[in-house]
Design a protein around this nucleic acid. Structure first.
Lengths: 285, 285
DNA sequence: TAAAACTCTAAAGTTGGTGGAGAGTTTTTC
DNA sequence: GAAAAACTCTCCACCAACTTTAGAGTTTTA
């Protein structure tokens, strides 16, 4: 090829710079038959592009930005079929929609986690008793067949495992960003016996669609006590019961142990967590 | 290790099933020091996990779902620093925000492209003259120093190249999904001389923030003629001018040649495009 | 004509996995 | 207690869409 014929042709570096892609990318596209240089010098192997090839490169980059695979793009470009392109674009649009929903869910999960870290940081010292208004909450539970207060942590973990599979079946992931809890029936708690009734996770509005094993905890005033070790639960629950009696509060529902994990960073859950034991109460008139 | 000590330990397959990950993934996490099995048999090399390690795995999966890299996750888990985790999460949240905006932009671009394909499909036959109301449009332009009607397509391509780099500098990608155009000043057009004034792309509302070289085309009635080849522009423009004169329309602004590319699938832009030549007009009272 | 700038090919690295081969180990079944 | 089934081991190759590097050759500029 004569030099004057090359005047409208761009060597690979110029072509790359003009289009904001790397030289290696252009070589890859050549190799993959996506964009062949207008002319390749048979002696030196140098690639020369026609300026007008930028429009095809545009198309490729456009589709790549839309996250289509190179082989898909090659197929589309080879077929030169407008209907096919339109179909792919419509499918892409649907996919973008889904991705946006996923991102929204991710955002919610991150927000929840950040809030829970904040909460952990500002949690009261162990032993603090408080009276709080707590909003309505949705829970997803597993009924408790064994008494893990007696049979130990391993039994508890097994039940959690059950909850976990339940969650996985629902395709409701991000187990982490929900906090967990256990409940004891009002009657048992009032007798001073911690017999576990349910193990559950607190969910958000997503949860309400999945009906089985989901229930509502009513909003209301709760007597609460904070602690930072599982081992202290039984004595603290007793203190809470005493507190309610001293103040003549009427216990109006089940006892709940809410497990606020800081962030499950460590291999054992024992460290870096705190618990908020709570009973709903009403006041005697 | 004695068999009874293994009773609370899960071999890799059970652990994988319980957490909805693959065996290979667990092995990878082991290798990458993300999650070491609680016990590894020194003879057989078999991995045994403690049930409680699921919480760490949760954390890893959570961060993976948030698209963090394994090495980032390892660093976070090693540091065990709550502040660091929170920082990362906040950064992640910001990134999710950006991604959502990107997706929005992608969606818009896809919509635009689909519309332009529809439009191409339903375009009138070449030579059709029409009177249309056209809405206000924003354009990003490059002033035209040379007359490509005379000096040919290569000069035109060079100007487009200039526009392209301008767009790239603005980090406004997806050149493809905007249609292009050229304009001729009213006075020149009325004299029947096509002297190019600007080369531009039509943008949407994004564009208005970037002030230099952006301008507005007012809404109004336009006399238009459709054609499907660049070569026909000059005679068609002449026909359009005649048409305006015959009907005693007053030309109220610059002549515009709008290049509606179907989709830049092919190496040369010539094929599969159509043009809409247009002049804004007012009616004599 | 030399130096600088550019380009070539080929191979390896990147990330977060998946899949397979061939060997060894545990558990189940008879 | 033996055989069969199920499980697990390591090591290696593979995926996409590049990026990076090495070592050699080519073109442009001074």
């Amino acid at each position: 090829m004569l030099p004057e014929q090359k005047q409208n042709l761009l060597p690979i570096g110029k072509m790359a710079a003009a289009n904001g892609v790397s030289i290696a990318t252009l070589r890859l596209y050549d190799q993959m038959d996506l964009l062949k240089p207008f002319y390749t010098d048979p002696d030196s192997g140098y690639r020369y592009y026609d300026i007008r090839q930028t429009s095809r490169l545009d198309t490729i980059r456009y589709m790549r930005d839309l996250d289509m695979s190179l082989s898909d793009i090659r197929d589309i470009l080879q077929k030169e079929d407008l209907t096919l392109i339109e179909e792919k674009l419509i499918a892409k649009d649907a996919q973008i929609h889904r991705q946006m929903q996923e991102l929204k869910a991710m955002h919610d999960a991150v927000e929840r986690t950040i809030q829970s870290i904040e909460r952990y940081r500002k949690s009261p010292t162990s032993g603090t008793i408080s009276l709080e208004f707590i909003n309505r909450r949705m829970i997803l539970y597993t009924p408790c067949s064994c008494n893990f207060y007696e049979s130990g942590i391993v039994a508890y973990e097994k039940i959690i495992q059950d909850l976990r599979t339940r969650l996985m079946e629902m395709e409701l992931p991000q187990f982490l960003s929900y906090s967990m809890g256990t409940s004891v029936r009002k009657e048992d708690f009032e007798r001073g016996e911690l017999v576990p009734d349910k193990v559950f996770i607190f969910g958000d509005s997503h949860l309400k669609d999945y009906s089985p094993n989901v229930c509502l905890l009513e909003s209301g005033m709760y007597a609460c006590i904070y602690l930072d070790r599982f081992d202290d639960e039984i004595p603290c629950a007793a203190r809470l019961l005493d507190y309610c009696r001293e103040n003549r509060y009427t216990i109006s529902g089940d006892y709940i142990c809410e497990e606020l994990t800081e962030f499950n960073v460590f291999d054992n859950r024992q460290r870096s967590m705190f618990l908020r034991l709570q009973v709903p109460i009403t006041f005697q008139k």
